[in-house]
């Protein structure tokens, strides 16, 4: 295995784990959404992300071994995507932050000629829709009722601390992170302001959260998520399904 392949694999693992984990979280909404249209929409986003995850993980090895047999500390996803769904506002805030990042990331990767350009060209269309969906709900919740405004502001504030991690360098990922981060801030700020929300002023990284997910340090809820996700597969070693 060459050093270059390893770097590409590291990048595929980071991006693949992000997609895998967020897809799982969104899948938890099935049957529980506030309106039937959102049951359809959230499942759709989850399916897009799962599709991306499968392509990316397959660049590294067997998709099921990677998803089901790794320990918590071996996952390379950001802490943002593993955060529990919370109320619908938390799910939307997490989606706004992440989809805006993914849209910029895949936009850059699609315009290059690196190993991810093919995947990115397809995925950028999907994530543009995810971003649009999150943006519209941010507007509705932020500028809806006093209750929805309060909930949306709380969600944006709570997840803000996890947003810096997305712009930490990842081996094998050849993108202009500074430009991406500036565009991300401008885009998210515009949406939040239009939604009559206050852009959170807290730190976007913390002593514990700075790039920690990408290094295999996760938050408590992630272990439980994996326990549930991996249980059946691990109970039948070597079985095919």
């Amino acid at each position: 295995m060459t050093a270059q392949t390893t770097a590409i694999e590291a990048a595929a693992l980071a991006l693949g784990d992000d997609a895998l984990v967020l897809s799982h979280r969104l899948g938890e909404w099935a049957g529980n959404a506030p309106v039937l249209e959102e049951d359809v929409a959230l499942a759709n986003i989850a399916l897009d992300l799962l599709g991306q995850a499968r392509v990316l993980l397959s660049l590294v090895g067997d998709e099921d071994e990677l998803a089901y047999l790794r320990e918590e500390r071996a996952f390379r996803n950001t802490q943002l995507v593993e955060q529990p769904n919370g109320d619908f506002a938390h799910t939307i805030a997490r989606q706004l932050y992440f989809s805006t990042y993914q849209k910029l990331l895949y936009g850059q990767l699609a315009s290059g000629e690196g190993p991810f350009s093919g995947l990115a060209a397809k995925a950028v269309k999907e994530v543009a829709y995810h971003q649009d969906h999150a943006e519209h709900w941010t507007l509705r919740l932020g500028d809806g009722t006093p209750e929805s405004h309060t909930r949306m502001q709380r969600a944006c504030d709570a997840l803000w601390r996890y947003t810096g991690e997305m712009f930490q360098p990842v081996d094998g990922l050849d993108v202009d992170l500074t430009a991406m981060e500036n565009s991300w801030l401008a885009s998210v700020t515009a949406v939040l302001e239009q939604a009559t929300l206050t852009v959170p002023d807290g730190p976007r990284t913390g002593a514990w959260t700075a790039g920690a997910g990408r290094q295999g340090l996760h938050t408590e809820p992630f272990g439980r998520m994996l326990a549930e996700m991996q249980h059946l597969h691990r109970s039948h070693p070597g079985a095919t399904w």
Binding site: E28, A30, G31, L36, V40, A43, L47, L50, L57, E228
Partner: peptide, 29 residues
Amino acid sequence: MQPEANWITRAPTLRRKAILMAKVQDEAG
């Protein structure tokens, strides 16, 4: 949707998970 969604988070492979999620989504549709 409920009895099947009960297994989305525990589906034993990613392929089965994708199929099940698509199926539950169809039911919402």
